[in-house]
Design a protein around this nucleic acid. Sequence first.
DNA 1: CCGAATCCTCAAAGATACTG
DNA 2: CAGTATCTTTGAGGATTCGG
Lengths: 128, 128
Amino acid sequence: MQVSVEVEGFPFDVFEPNCPSRGVLEHVTSRWAVLVLWLLLEEGTLRFSQLRRRVGGVSEKMLAQTLQRLERDGFVERIAHPVIPPHVDYSLTPLGVPAAQQVAGLASWIEQQLPAVQSAREAYDRSK
Amino acid sequence: MQVSVEVEGFPFDVFEPNCPSRGVLEHVTSRWAVLVLWLLLEEGTLRFSQLRRRVGGVSEKMLAQTLQRLERDGFVERIAHPVIPPHVDYSLTPLGVPAAQQVAGLASWIEQQLPAVQSAREAYDRSK
DNA sequence: CCGAATCCTCAAAGATACTG
DNA sequence: CAGTATCTTTGAGGATTCGG
């Protein structure tokens, strides 16, 4: 058997370039995905326009792109009701829930630590 | 007193545009910062060139930029030994440890879920 | 109301060369 | 060794239009 192959040059190791995990990680931790996942975790289900309003500053293009990547990666479920005007609901899949929990945990922790970060920045800038 | 001000339009809410938390979040979740934090969490202390070698694909420029932002935000400590040739050590600060733990947790979880993500992608692409 | 398609821009990422 | 400085390239992201 060949265990050492997977230990040394394991192609699924994020520290290796061109590892497929990196793409997924970047999708999940991308600017807008973090906020979308957090909102869906809190609210359960949201429409496109609701997400658009609540994620401050996001453009339609970036929101659509973000949702499509998250859907393709299996973290978000998209349900389009065939009515006029269109009605599309987004929610987390079973796989998406733990992803959203970790991402939301990190984001809210950072919100709490913001004062500490700001004073660290002041100290850094002062010593320059 | 004016409590409602902070409840409704709280300027430190990540869902608001131009919230300072967003910058910090983006620094921590950026492509290279995730890998740097993870490595420092595992190894404790690493030199610039060690990080450069172990973070596959990173350029000197991006590594330096990543480390500077993490240092300025108070997550990473930089210790330059005044010797020739130069010797600079990087490690996590007390604030950086929980950040690195959360980021590393997310990254390793995604690595584990990669098969699930890949089959979700296949199902998504097939239904197009 | 949703989101696909197009065009456009500018800031970030990479490559390269140089320095204390 | 540990970075800067400079230049070039890439593509993320915004604005707009259109269609269902």
